[in-house]
Structure formats: C-alpha cells, structure tokens
Amino acid sequence: MTELSSIEVTALIALGALAVVFGAAVFIVDSMARATFALLASFLAIAGALLVLDLVYLAVVTALMMTIEMAVMAVFMIMFMMNPAGLMPMSMVHNKRGSVLAGATVFAVLVTGIWMVDWPTRRGLVPEDPTRQLGEAIMGSHMLVMLVIGIALFGTILAGTVLATSRGRYDRFGPDLKAPRPDDPVRGGVGR
C-alpha cells in the first residue's frame, strides 16, 4: 500500500500517455462528434490513472462528470454547426503557428521545472480510506473551500440559466404576470 508495483507504474504511465494521445486527437480528427469523444477518452484515461493512484472517489467522479459533460457537449456541437455528421476535412484554426509555439514553450518550461526541482520525499502512508480522508477534510479543516465552491456553483447555475434563456416570466405569464397558464411552446408535465 505504500509503493506502486511496477505493473501499476506501467499502467499509470500508459494511461497518461493515452490521455495525451486522445487529447491531441481532439484537434486532429475531422468530426466534432469524434473530437468530443476523443476528449472523453482522454478524461477516462485520467480517471483510470487516478484509480491506480488509489483515489477511487475522485476517479469515479471524474468519469461521471466528464461523461455527462461530453455528452452535452456533443449535442451542443451538433446544434451549432461545425461540420456535424461528416468526416470531411475540418480546419477551423487561427494563428496556428503562434499556438503551437505557445503550447510547446509552456510544455518545455514545465518539463524543465519538473526535472530540475528537487521534489520533497514522500511523507506518510496512503490512508486506509482516501475517500474518508477527503470527506473529513471537506466537512472539517477545508470547509471554507467547500463553502466557496458551493456558492460558486450556485452562482453558475443562476448565471448560466439567465444567459442561456431568452424567455423570462413576463414572456410566459404576460406583462402583468396574470396568465393562468404559461405561454410555453410545449406543455410540461406538471400541468401548469
């Protein structure tokens, strides 16, 4: 439980490499559906790596969240054009050289840093239940972080809904909000 076996190290590095390959595929493939699912594959590879690192909860949550996000994203991309079904050549880039340069530079700087820094040696052992460790941190020592996250997510829900919808209650219930039934294009299931 303290160290990774050689199989685990191999798995970790292979999954990481897979994640990079799928990540690059996102910008290479010709179809938006494939780009989205390449990104999902990249996330799932990282989830697998987290699983190897004994972070079961985080791995599973990553898989869960990213799958949902990517499914929504696929629909979005098909809604908003971008060469949906086809496998036609697709290139929608600007400033390609600058971007390659920026990406490569950042990578080089990071790699230099990673291999130059004298990393601290490992302290302590992996706890028996990493999920419990995280849970107790969230509800204890790191509660402030969680509060901020909660508020941020709530704000996102509100802001996102406001930005994305075009119809407010005045459109639905009339200028004096007195309509008995909302004027919706489709009747919902609650019978309002």
């Binding site: 990481g16 990079v20 880039v93 600007h94 600058g98 390659v100 990406g103 990071l110």
Partner: peptide, 21 residues
C-alpha cells in the same frame, strides 16, 4: 507522471489558442 501532465497542458493550450470555435 508530471511530464505527462505537462504534455496535456501543452496540447490543451495549443487547442485553446488555435481554435476558432
């Protein structure tokens, strides 16, 4: 592992800067 992570960051940065959509 960190190098692999840096690779992801680099690829992502390229994408974020180069894409139009």
């Amino acid at each position: 592992v960190l190098t692999v992570a840096a690779g992801l960051v680099g690829v992502g940065l390229y994408g974020a800067l180069s894409q139009q959509s």
